[in-house]
Amino acid sequence: MDIRPRPRLALTAGEPAGVGPELLARLASIPFDAELVAITDRELLKRAARRCDIQLELLDEDAPAPAISTAVQLRVRHVPLGATERPGHPDPANAAHVLATLAEAADGCLSGRYDAVVTAPLQKASINEAGIAFSGHTEFFAERAGADVVMMLASPELRVALATTHLPLAAVPAAIQADLLTRTLRIVDAELRAKFGIERPRIGVLGLNPHAGESGHLGREEIDIIIPALDRLRDEGMDLLGPLPADTAFVPVMRARYDAVLAMYHDQALPVLKSEAFDRTVNLTLGLPFIRTSVDHGTALDLAGSGRADASSLIAATRMALDLVQRARNNA
């Protein structure tokens, strides 16, 4: 019999004026074999629950649960807002609050207080407008943990890792270098083994240019950078396919040949993934010393405050985090 305590997952609410707080309120009503701890402002959650018509009982993080309750329960680690939220209208005064919730979650995972963190969407622009340079969750957690990381988005049917993330398209070609590809593919290979239990991962690698460069006629990055990097990693024993033309890499016959695909830039592969599995796609950060999953959508400011936001992606992210925690426990 397993006598270990149930996994404890940290939840961050993201942008206070977005749909994140309402998604957390909805998530609390879903049964999980885990303790969920929302790291956010208590009153923010109460207001979000009322908008969703949910009777939500908030418990202190380490308080004993009541023996009998008819309300939906959620544990909270309180991080106060800088200013009361106005749904649909992000306020830079809350930038420090948002970053504090991420720091609490990351530090809690690093110390062993939490087994994983699941993040709701935030508004990057609002944080930058507060004078704080910020490019995203992935980069924040990487710096906090001192880790090299890779962004992966996964649905039940497809896993997509990114060589570059939040870069302007014009900056991508210069960023595609052999050392970047080598580091990224080593992380993806290791994490597919460790987190997903794939004994010998098969990774498809997209080319940068149309038709993967067309033998140099449509660009030389494949010939000069990508192919030599892949060949060196194949010599190390990695099972790599490519570089593949992105326009045919996702047809069913090609998908059957790999366990994950590495795209060169953000919008090269993600439209495929999101068009077929938007509500089932989860954002993962590979390479961290803890498990982090997230929704694969934005703050939906047009829906914020309506109580109608769909929590499917957050539910999927929570389930994946819990699955990864259980796999790690079983392999320990």
Rank of each mutant, 00 (worst) to 15 (best):
R308C: 12
L324S: 04
L301I: 04
H297Y: 08
N330G: 15
L324W: 02
K274F: 13
D296L: 06
V325H: 04
L303C: 04
R257F: 05
V272C: 12
L314M: 14
E276I: 15
R257K: 15
G298S: 12
A263I: 01
Q268V: 08
L303P: 09
S275I: 02
D247Q: 07
F250K: 09
S306Y: 04
A317E: 01
S275N: 14
R257T: 15
A311N: 03
N283D: 06
G305V: 08
V251C: 13
T293N: 02
M264Y: 00
L262W: 07
L303N: 02
V261G: 06
V251M: 15
L244Y: 10
T248I: 15
D296P: 10
V251D: 15
L244R: 12
A304T: 07
S312T: 04
S306D: 11
V282K: 13
V325L: 03
R308Y: 11
L244T: 13
V325I: 09
D323K: 05
L284W: 01
R329K: 11
L286Q: 07
D259C: 12
A309W: 12
N283L: 13
L284T: 00
Y265P: 13
A260R: 07
L244N: 07
R319F: 08
G305F: 03
T318G: 01
G305R: 12
A328S: 15
D267C: 02
F290S: 04
L270W: 02
S306C: 06
D296Q: 03
V272Q: 08
S275G: 14
L314T: 01
S294W: 00
L314E: 03
R327Y: 10
A321Q: 08
R292F: 02
G298E: 10
S306N: 05
N331K: 12
L303G: 09
D323L: 09
D259M: 11
P271V: 11
G307V: 03
A256G: 15
P252Y: 13
S294R: 07
N331H: 14
S312K: 06
P245N: 14
L288Y: 08
R319Y: 09
Y265T: 10
P289L: 11
M254L: 15
A246H: 04
D259V: 07
T281C: 10
L244E: 09
R255V: 05
V261Q: 08
V282Q: 13
D310W: 11
R292W: 04
V282W: 02
S312A: 15
P245H: 08
L270T: 00
D267T: 07
A309K: 09
A321G: 07
D310T: 10
D302R: 09
S313Y: 01
L322F: 10
G298P: 10
L244S: 10
R280C: 02
L324R: 00
R308G: 13
A246V: 01
V282F: 00
Q326S: 05
E276Q: 14
N283C: 09
